[in-house]
Amino acid sequence: MTAPGPVLRSLVDPFHPHPYRVVARRRETSDTVTLRLCPATDPYLPGSPGQFMMLTAFGIGEVPISLSRVPDRSGMLEHTIRAVGSVTRHLVALRPGDWVGVRGPFGTGWPLDLARGRDVLLVAGGLGFAPLRSALEAILERRQDYRRVTVLLGARTPSDVLYRQILPRWQRRNDVDLRVTVDRPDERWRGQVGVVPQLVSQVAPSFEPTETVAFICGPDVMMRFTVRELQRHGVSDDRIFLSLERNMQCGVGLCGHCQLGPFFLCKDGPVLPYSRLMPFYEVREL
């Protein structure tokens, strides 16, 4: 996935964003859009599933956003962004042709190497599907390298489910078991109702716990309960990977904001195995 690009200015000076342009904008939910970005100048930035970029809205500020689609051969990439603060509100409002500053890629990606030859379980809550989408696409590109592939998605309501245009394409495949659940159904919802950790028991019979690698991304409470469920079904802690969200400002372990115990989540994470996270992740307010 990681293309060995030419020497990047960001390696010399990690604080300078690269100019990108919005080339497409797709509304996902009431407050979330996906932006397709294209490098305005060479060289373009590489990136692997699970890594994140720092996106700058001109004159407003910078935020960490994970890659929902990794850069293709022309450097085109996608970010799914929810409007929650001033920077993300501005990013979500951008239109094709608008400028975006991009720094990155930062952090650890999903351990696809470890997942190869094993059952893979992707568990996403809400916007947590964005970084897992890039993993799913990488897996489907080389589907034969993996055993059972299961995707469990949770959202608050049916209209909060991400990537609804593409979802049916994945659901139609017989080599992917994709299940969606919502907390609060509307009158037209015919799928499952409940929280996403509950789905683990449903699919547990179909995967081999000792040969399973799980990738989880979502709200902390959802990840904690999902981990419990996976443990209960015999998946070992060093095969359960979480992607954590913290205040990230520099992306290179220099600004200090994203610390969790000994980890700088921007460079040691955001993806870490539960076995390493556990002593710190389970301590309140650490």
Partner: peptide, 18 residues
């Protein structure tokens, strides 16, 4: 060593500094 970054613009909004 911890630092934060802030983007500031001039009144026109066309010049910004981090």
């Amino acid at each position: 060593f911890c630092f934060s970054v802030e983007d500031r613009t001039d009144l026109s909004g066309n010049v910004t500094e981090r």
